[in-house]
Amino acid sequence: MHVLVTGGAGFIGSHTVVSLLERGHRVTIADDFDNSSPKVLDRIEAITGIRPELAEVDLLDEAAFDAAFAAAKPDAVIHFAGLKAVGESAADPLRYYAHNLGSTFSLLRAMKRHDVSTLVFSSSATVYGDVQQPPYTEDGGRLDATNPYGMTKVMLERILRDIAGAESGWHIALLRYFNPIGAHESGLIGEDPSGIPNNLAPYILQVAVGRLPRLSVFGDDYPTADGTGERDYIHVVDLAEGHVAALEKLATTEGARAWNLGTGTPTSVLQMIAAFEEASGRPIPYSVGPRRAGDLPQSWADTGRAEAELGWKATRDIADMARDGWRWQEQNPRGFSD
């Protein structure tokens, strides 16, 4: 199958491209490198022996993207492209709504024009908001995110369901992932955030490698085992393999269907720090501050549907995530800028 991967040079996208190539699929990456590096293609080629095709294009430039789509002639799309920082979305919601919805509309119009109806959509556990109690199930209640980034995912899930309900022939996977961390075991590709990291694991890694002085822990008075927030962390390679499983499932699944991709096991902030200290052999200095507005005490997935329907299950644990994440950061102290 020929798969167009939007945002395929990013953290999750690049790992998914590797998994697709290893499964024998042909890949074209569509990326404008606004928040990624062209060096990723060299690294993917080094890992797989195959260089993915590239369409360097901004999805918001609809004419240019349509031309790139027409030239690629894909059979299916995996859609990662979009803005994804929760805090930034709260500070600039208009930019997030315009970008994430607008780029997806551009993609959907191109798919309709060129008769491509198979789509794996990058959603998020943020769609659960604070409505459910964990573990979160796909049909456990209404979706209602607590921040603009998450709300773009809620809106797009609804839009995709409406399209699939109104027009027969669509095959759409809505993949709600939890907290991807780690890196490819080669150390050649990994997470390389611009500026100060917004997420816990890359922040810990930049402290460990000496780029940042210490970690701030937001709250140690939650109703959890050690008082710090608990999240469901998933190895990015497990997550990538989940995308391939969903893509292959869509051959026999019409309409739009949601699947959680997580481990089903919560890990606290302090447990994460300990895992990365063990992996790196270095202390991770941290200070505890007040809770951060909007943070939930706990969040983790019910993964039963993905296991039953996709035949997929996360197999890598926190020690694996910390070890592979540290290998990437140690080999690439400044990410793809090295």
Rank of each mutant, 00 (worst) to 15 (best):
G8V: 06
A9Y: 02
A9F: 00
L21W: 02
R26F: 04
T28G: 03
I29W: 00
D31F: 01
D32Y: 07
S37G: 08
K39M: 13
G49R: 06
I50V: 15
D58N: 15
L60M: 11
A68I: 01
K73R: 15
P74E: 01
A76R: 10
V77L: 10
H79I: 15
A81W: 09
E88N: 13
D92Y: 08
A98Q: 14
F105W: 14
R109Q: 14
S124C: 09
A125C: 14
P134C: 10
P134L: 09
E138W: 06
G141H: 10
A145N: 07
M151L: 13
M155Y: 13
L156T: 14
S168G: 15
A173P: 00
R176I: 08
P180Q: 01
H184Q: 05
H184D: 13
S186R: 03
L188S: 09
L188E: 12
L200V: 07
P202G: 03
Y203R: 11
A208D: 07
A208L: 14
G210C: 01
L212C: 09
P213A: 12
T224L: 11
G229P: 00
Y233V: 07
Y233L: 10
H235N: 04
A240K: 02
A240L: 04
V244Q: 04
A251P: 08
G255L: 03
Q271P: 00
Q271E: 15
I273N: 08
A274Q: 14
E277M: 02
G281M: 09
P283H: 01
I284M: 01
G289I: 07
D295Q: 09
D295G: 03
A308K: 14
M321G: 12
E330S: 13
E330G: 04
P333F: 12
